[in-house]
Simulated scan of single mutants.
Amino acid sequence: MTSQWECFLQNLGVWEGSFTQFSPQGTLIEDIPSRLTLEGLNNNQTVRLTLSRSGQDVKREFSSVGGGLLFFKNGSFSEGLIQLGPFSEFGAELALVHENRRLRLVQIFDKNGQLNTFILIREHLTGTEAAERPTLQLDDLLGEWRGEAVTIYPDWRSPDTYSTTLKLQLDDTGRLIQSTSFGDRTITSIATIKDRIILFDQDPQKQVQVLLLPDGASATSPLKVQLRQPLFLEVGWLIQPNLRQRMIRSYNEKGEWVSLTLVTEERVGNC
């Protein structure tokens, strides 16, 4: 099995891009060019991170990974808090890697648990083409998607791999009907659509929104995180018209981080 350190090393290189901040409603707040260098030292026993942004450099060195950080084989990863606590900020980063590009999303909730801000980070390896996709549209997602999910765990148990199906279609009133199947379990939910926001609001206490973002990205978040309620954070990336990746970071009813799932799916039909 590939070690977490070997998975981390998939990210070595110089990544050029930008940090773009959005409000929960998708309003652009600021866009800052960035350059992030991940350099292997001592025969890759150590990795030095240098982030240049707004004329300032931030440096970190790693000799191991762990805590709230987990990697997949292709280098995709998530880092964030391992425990939701009362009266404290909460959030996580979810990062997808595909060939010469990375798409990273940071979701932040304020001390009252309210969704506060998104930071979308779009990067490409220096010297390669930065071929971004347009802002995601609802029509880009409609249809049936089939794929494979890999779930890894912070307690280092063996990963789980299983098939997935996602069906997205509009009903006669313009609402979105979503049917998600993981293995032998299927969940169906209904959402209303307003501009770039898809809102699953059937349960007023557990409202979840999907925000459509530039570069084929989407951010799925609860509008409010609450103690004694399970939750998940998700990023999606439409890499090609019929190829999409999603990453899901899940917490249980105790507020404990319990798993990280990477889904790679292809559209097999239109609805």
Rank of each mutant, 00 (worst) to 15 (best):
Q4L: 14
W5E: 01
E6I: 10
N11R: 08
N11W: 05
S18G: 08
S23L: 00
S23E: 14
P24L: 10
D31N: 14
I32D: 09
L36F: 07
N42M: 14
Q45S: 06
Q45E: 08
T46Y: 08
T46F: 06
S52Q: 15
G55T: 03
V58T: 13
R60T: 06
E61G: 13
F62R: 03
G66A: 13
G80Y: 03
G85Q: 14
P86Y: 08
L94Y: 15
L96T: 09
V97T: 09
L103G: 11
L103W: 01
R104K: 11
I108F: 11
N112I: 06
N112W: 06
G113R: 15
G113N: 11
I119A: 08
R122I: 06
R122N: 12
H124Q: 05
H124N: 11
E129H: 12
E132P: 03
L136G: 08
D139Y: 04
D139L: 10
D140Q: 03
E144V: 05
I152P: 00
T164A: 05
T165N: 13
L168I: 05
Q169P: 12
D172R: 14
R175A: 09
R175K: 12
Q178F: 09
D184T: 05
D184R: 08
T186C: 12
I187E: 03
T188K: 12
I190M: 12
I193G: 00
Q207V: 06
Q207T: 02
Q209S: 06
Q209F: 04
D215G: 13
A217L: 07
A219P: 11
A219E: 09
S221W: 10
L223R: 13
V235L: 11
W237F: 08
N242G: 06
R246V: 00
R249C: 05
Y251D: 03
N252Q: 06
N252W: 09
W257P: 01
E266M: 08
R267F: 05
V268S: 04
N270Y: 05
C271N: 15
